[in-house]
Write a protein that binds this DNA or RNA. Structure first.
Lengths: 205, 205
DNA sequence: CGATAAGCGGACCGCCTGGTCAACTTGTTA
DNA sequence: TAACAAGTTGACCAGGCGGTCCGCTTATCG
């Protein structure tokens, strides 16, 4: 069902170099990183990039799929943690940690890259909803925030930090802590607007 | 000291159309909006754009200067409000409100556009620091957050909302409320990282 | 080893971008 | 109204982009 013939050894090596270089380049320069630069960084020709991935978006999708996959795994593993509040915080920490480089908006902006990305993202959103529901039932977060809220806020710590030049690598933890405090029930003020009704919601949930 | 000759009537009109079109276009498409599109939207020729502003960055700077100016005015007016906590919240509301369209990162990314932008931005940051200091002294926000923190978090509500397609125009208020709750002293957990030491800090303050 | 196809790479293409320019139009003023 | 400077414009340019292609290299395997 998958490829009948395995990659040639050098091709496999180049593919790894390419993915690593692309991840770095996207992380540093954002989505506008040029294919030529990525190829140069990987030490391969530009043509080789397009042999491995038909378009630049396909290359990006491959990286994004990887990240979403990893994050979903973390989330699902945390679903039966003892303390649901800690579990949610840990999940958000993992999410921000894997994105600690420049804000890529990996999970959000890359929405329409491919069917696979969409599918995996939906699955990840589903996991977040369950983590949030558990935390809410446990009284660890306020009653009026939803999974969609958390999904939207998930990227904020990285985004915030991206503005400060030469930021210490763990600065995002500070803003995650502030935002998470805003999600806690203690001292919560009523929210002025309803949550977005469908964003990030698994269909029918 | 300023221009000896006033603009011709049609030129002034075009300038206004241009600035309005550019603001809209930047708001909708972000910083990548093309000069040609802006000109088309304004109903003028592309050459005319460059007669009014030598470069695309100059055009952007003109808009940014305007926004920063307006925001600083709001902030300074709020400096002697009765309730410093409310004043800070109101300032953040004004900041998010003026940026309620697509996330432009006006204040942050546009850092090096011109000397004037840098100067005005520094002045605005100074105002924020004073608002935050007052709010903290008044016990309205937690002791461990700084002006730099608030400056960084200022854009987060807009950024967060920018991910949801067809968001209700006031949705950002919801996330501003959550983040502001995270800034309050009630139920605050200690922050894991020190604040950025210099970002947004007026020199020597 | 020798044959073969998988893999490689850089010249090349079309497109779009920010920016220039010289011919043309028009508001202003005496 | 006449004359001139201020303003307008779209064709044009160089540069960079994603993507293609074909002659060359090289890993693989009988």
């Amino acid at each position: 069902m998958t490829q009948p013939r395995p990659l040639r050894a050098d091709a496999a090596r180049n593919r790894r170099l390419l993915l690593a270089a692309a991840a770095d380049e996207f992380a540093e320069r954002g989505l506008d990183a040029s294919v030529a630069d990525i190829a140069r960084r990987a030490g391969i020709g530009k043509g080789t990039v397009f042999r491995h991935f038909a378009t630049k978006d396909d290359l990006l999708a491959a990286i994004v799929v990887d990240r979403i996959q990893a994050l979903t795994d973390v989330g699902e593993r945390l679903l039966d943690a003892a303390d649901p509040g800690d579990a949610l915080l840990e999940f958000l920490t993992a999410a921000a940690h894997q994105r600690q480089q420049r804000d890529l908006s990996f999970l959000q902006e890359a929405g329409d890259l491919s069917e696979e990305v969409t599918r995996l993202r939906t699955r990840m959103f589903h996991t977040v909803h369950r983590l949030v529901d558990r935390a809410r039932e446990h009284g660890a977060i306020r009653a009026d925030v939803t999974g969609a809220d958390v999904i939207l806020l998930m990227c904020a710590p990285n985004h915030v930090v991206s503005y400060v030049p030469d930021a210490p690598p763990d600065l995002w933890r500070r803003y995650l802590a502030i935002i998470f405090d805003g999600l806690r029930p203690q001292g919560a003020h009523p929210l002025p607007q309803p949550p977005p009704d469908s964003y990030g919601d698994p269909v029918g949930s």
